[in-house]
């Protein structure tokens, strides 16, 4: 039996790549790899971005999705340009995963992710203190699943 986490995110598992616009104006190629671990109890998320032509690294990150007692997604993350954070799901539309949490230095990180028609969309924004960060530049990427990832019924554990 798939776990509640895998039931919700089965369509997200795999490797994704696409163009990315960073909040500081740079552009690159973003890669996300989501892998079920511990028989579906958690999902490991590995992220990397590259200079498109040379492959030189721009950013690197890692994290885990899991569900807390209330069934909310908890995403503990590390990103080389942000540091460590624990993000917790905030209310949003059913097909959207919105997460928010504190970063070192009185900053906050808000991330919104969704998958539709084999297209993963991610938007993230760093804010400061208790103020809303709506006006601040965001990092935005749309990624396609790479390769022809075949999926069976009830995929992945």
């Amino acid at each position: 039996m798939p776990t509640p986490l895998i039931t919700r995110f089965a369509e997200w598992l795999g490797t994704w790549r696409g163009k990315c616009e960073f909040s500081d104006g740079r552009e690159g190629l973003m890669q996300f790899r989501l892998t079920s671990i511990f028989n579906g109890e958690a999902i490991q998320v590995e992220t990397a971005s590259y200079v498109s032509d040379s492959g030189a690294p721009m950013t690197r990150g890692s994290g885990f999705f899991s569900l807390d007692r209330q069934g909310r997604v908890v995403n503990n993350i590390y990103a080389d340009y942000l540091g460590f954070a624990v993000l917790v799901e905030t209310p949003d539309d059913p097909e959207v995963l919105s997460l928010e949490g504190g970063l070192p230095g009185n900053r906050t990180l808000a991330v919104t992710m969704s998958v539709a028609d084999d297209l993963m969309t991610l938007s993230s924004r760093v804010g400061e203190g208790y103020k809303s960060a709506a006006g601040r530049p965001r990092t935005y990427t749309q990624m396609r699943r790479v390769g022809s990832f075949p999926r069976a019924e009830g995929v992945a554990e």
Binding site: T15, R17, K19, L29, M30, Q31, D53, R144, V146
Partner: peptide, 12 residues
């Protein structure tokens, strides 16, 4: 090997 624009893998 992947496409530098779209990221699509075309050789593995």
């Amino acid at each position: 090997t992947w496409d530098t624009v779209t990221g699509e893998t075309f050789s593995a």
